[in-house]
């Protein structure tokens, strides 16, 4: 898939575990795992907003397009 999710990179920079991120964002661990491993088909804006708020980053830091 051309869209690459760099969630694990941001989590490592902020020293945050998946469980912690899940609690703060309000998304289940399994769903975050789906996102992190690049298996997600779509991301809601509300989820992206919550992740960016918790990780203090921009959407472009998490999502990357590679042709």
């Amino acid at each position: 898939m051309p869209i690459i999710v760099n969630l694990d990179v941001m989590m490592a920079k902020r020293k945050m575990s998946l469980n912690e991120l899940s609690e703060k964002v309000g998304v289940t661990v399994s769903n975050l795992s789906i996102l992190k491993t690049g298996k997600a088909k779509a991301v809601r804006f509300s989820t992206l907003e919550a992740i960016c708020e918790v990780l203090d980053c921009q959407p472009g830091d998490i999502l990357e397009y590679e042709n």
Binding site: V27, L35, K39, A40, K41, A42, V43, R44
Partner: peptide, 8 residues
Amino acid sequence: QTENELTV
């Protein structure tokens, strides 16, 4: 349904 399940 599959797409919805994989929507985060």
